[in-house]
Design a protein around this nucleic acid. Structure first.
Lengths: 337, 337
DNA sequence: TCCGAAATTGTAAACGTTTACAGAAAGTAC
DNA sequence: GTACTTTCTGTAAACGTTTACAATTTCGGA
């Protein structure tokens, strides 16, 4: 654990200058004899180049960041699983930031770009404040945002069309003959919460169904909250025959409560989740869920970031991933692959 | 995205030397007037200190690494969730390495310690080779290994007592009157695979049950493999009345197959998983599982690492986390909290 | 007003690399 | 052997900090 050898150590042992050592190690042309001596000195000393010094000189850290609210959320996990190998293949390490659903924390991470320890960042802000927008603009390194930002924001952006996703779900339920479709949403001041809310209203209207406030309940994006919200909803609207949940975790909470209340799924109440995480296949009954393409969004974000790093200035891009309904037993009574 | 200001820029604008700027920014004693001018120059310029330069000087990167086989595994996820906040609170960033179950990749990460981009590392090697042991010894920064290493290895180590964990499970099943207890294990050349295998044999012997090779099957540590292995087992030993699975993913695969084969759980076959991940509560029926304290192990590892960073040389420690059986409907027919 | 001590500041070196530039060595052609 | 070109090497500066040390300023007391 003593201080490791540096190019100076190698230079001394090989009897050459540090410049020559550096050139040999970087594969620049050198006399065969010099190369031989440097290489063997390096090997004998167990030399490993100091990446910090290298970064200082090259102004590149070879690290990229990923910032999300909470690593526990399977959606983010699915993204990391896509992002990590893409970064790795491009020679970047992954620095993870969990911001605990804290906007100030997010701003900190953005500011941190100035510290130059990462060359770029993928971020999923739950809420997008003015402060966020300002910081995007003045950021000192490329950023890709996953999640819809206001049109015209000067930043690479990957979006899920969750409004359309909600529509797919509502149409599916309507097609199955359900008319009293409850909706358990997440907080309305979050980006996904707001979009899903809008999508729900739109879908009802398109289908000619009335918007009944008693059929809508809001909680947090977690299982326990989902359960509590569902319980409230069942009390207010005992006649509901379907439940659309703003994500899979909420849907699991809903399933817990429906089971406790002895309502059969899907016979009495059909349930649809969103995100189509691994949880959907684990739930019982397996959960029909709207895939918002988490994996694709992760990959797209990683590739946008790498592209931006390679090609510098170019107008920001917006990639929208199309939603897809994956039907399973929680609405169809029988699993379809 | 232009080059940001440095202390030199600030020094010019404030009309002082870079040393003074540095002192002000680090809170060393300075004349009030100087401090005022430096601070306002820094604020106006939007100065953010360059952490790479700082690291070069201080020889500390303020980053710590976590290396595991595959981020998708919920056990590792549970660990990350504990590790990340502990690191963050201590002022360290988290660098994630997913080694794809590849020993060479793991060695690479260990070698990477020499690059000095992390000040320490927590690693979960699936297999511990001689190469690993050699690299532990010559590592240029502190390491904590999660997973049992040979006694006497000079490295901080956090262990789960999975042998005892397996015993708990077998005794539980035996106590329920099951006598034909199948065992779906992971690869025997992995650390957990080997220990679980030993534990299974021990437990049978302690209970006076015969070891029947037909009751043991090996696959990989994933859901699909678990399913396939279970199918093979059912064919060879159709009379088995219990199934012990080496982790929860395998157990989920087993539940899939048992359902397909119309065997009731737990009436016909009682099923036990290991690791007690979130999956256990999601499965249907909810899965009895042996908790190997993933969260505790993660936290313990993080604290060992921080302690080592703070106190330098001290004999390596071994922390062993006790297993705990969490019974649920897959063995008891009814959930107990 | 001056002296010495204390407080503050500036200069310069260092951390470990990469790289522009100039100088040395080697090779070529006569 | 000389002159010229080509190839290789070493010196030194730079990246953005921190910090030892010396130089300067400030201040209290006479």
């Amino acid at each position: 654990m003593s201080d490791g050898p540096t190019i100076t150590t190698i230079a001394q042992r090989a009897g050459v200058s540090i410049a020559s050592v550096s050139r040999v190690l970087n594969g620049l042309p050198t006399k065969a004899e010099t190369e031989r001596r440097v290489m063997s000195a390096a090997r004998e000393l167990g030399y490993v180049p100091n990446s910090v010094a290298r970064s200082l000189k090259s102004r590149r850290s070879n690290q990229l960041g990923f910032a999300m609210a909470d690593i526990g959320n399977p959606v983010y996990l699915a993204m990391i699983r896509e992002i990590q190998p893409v970064f790795k293949a491009a020679g970047y390490r992954l620095v993870l930031h969990s911001t605990n659903v804290d906007a100030a924390d997010e701003i900190d991470v953005l500011r941190g770009l100035g510290e130059r320890y990462i060359d770029g960042l993928i971020m999923i802000p739950l809420r997008v404040t003015d402060e966020h927008l300002k910081t995007f603009a003045s950021a000192r390194a490329p950023i890709v945002i996953i999640g819809t930002v206001p049109d015209g924001t000067h930043v690479d952006n990957v979006r899920a069309d969750s409004r359309r996703g909600v529509r797919l779900a509502v149409e599916h339920l309507h097609g199955l003959g359900r008319r009293r479709i409850g909706f358990v949403n997440g907080p309305l001041d979050t980006v996904p919460g707001a979009h899903r809310s809008a999508g729900y209203a739109e879908a009802l209207q398109a289908l000619g169904l009335p918007y009944d406030r008693d059929l809508v309940e809001v909680g947090d994006f977690y299982r326990a909250d989902g359960g509590r919200a569902t319980a409230r909803l069942l009390e207010r609207a005992p006649d509901l025959d379907a439940l659309l949940c703003a994500n899979d975790l909420i849907a699991l909470g809903a399933l817990d409560v429906l089971r406790r209340e002895r309502r059969r799924v899907p016979e009495d109440v059909a349930v649809v989740g969103m995100d189509d995480t691994d949880l959907a296949t684990l739930a019982w009954p397996p959960l029909t869920s709207v895939s918002l393409g988490s994996a694709e969004r992760g990959r797209a974000a990683a590739e946008l970031l790498l592209d931006r790093l390679r090609h510098g200035e170019r107008p920001p891009r917006v990639v929208t991933v199309e939603p897809r309904l994956v039907t399973r037993a929680s609405t169809m009574g029988e699993e379809t692959p």
